[in-house]
């Protein structure tokens, strides 16, 4: 059964969630950490069969990470951004690999670049970085320029080589 975007917004509002209408085919939902799995299972049951991506945003001033689960429906033609805020000092969230298998790689990547632990995920080994010993590189408190200057002897504007 095809649902329109307005019907989806109504359904989610009835479940007590804060919904924002962003674009003709895109909405965002704010979920809390405890409710996340329930919410994603519900979305999957109403036709949202495709998890496109998981990404993280570092809100360093607020001491929080925001995880965004991008979910798309081929029947409803609606893209839902599910936003979850978690504590930056204790970045843990339950895994969703059991729900969508492709989440394995997205969770590995987010773990590698932000240090967020997906509880229950059996393999959080690095995908891209080799022999990385510093803090995860996409956190806002990681100074990539200073790192490059120290390790690779980088010179601003190309130096005078």
């Amino acid at each position: 059964m095809k649902l329109s975007k307005e019907e989806i917004i109504d359904l989610l509002k009835q479940r007590g969630l804060e919904v924002n209408d962003l674009y003709p085919t895109q909405i965002s939902v704010i979920v809390n950490k405890e409710n996340l799995i329930n919410h994603l299972v519900y979305l999957k049951s109403i036709g949202f069969d495709h998890l496109s991506f998981i990404n993280a945003v570092d809100f360093i001033d607020e001491g929080e990470f925001e995880l965004v689960y991008h979910v798309w429906s081929y029947t409803n033609k609606v893209h839902v951004l599910n936003k979850v805020r978690i504590d930056r000092n204790d970045p843990k969230i339950p895994t969703i690999v059991d729900l969508w298998e492709q989440a394995q790689f997205y969770e590995q990547e987010v773990h590698e670049f932000f240090g967020i632990v997906f509880e229950g995920n059996k393999d959080l080994s690095p995908l891209f970085l080799e022999n990385w010993l510093d803090i995860p590189p996409l956190r806002k408190d990681f100074d990539t320029r200073e790192f490059s200057i120290r390790l690779f002897d980088a010179k601003p504007n190309g130096g005078d080589r």
Partner: peptide
């Protein structure tokens, strides 16, 4: 990419 954490410069 001179200030990238993963790219060598010279």
């Amino acid at each position: 990419y001179w200030d990238s954490y993963n790219t060598i410069t010279n």
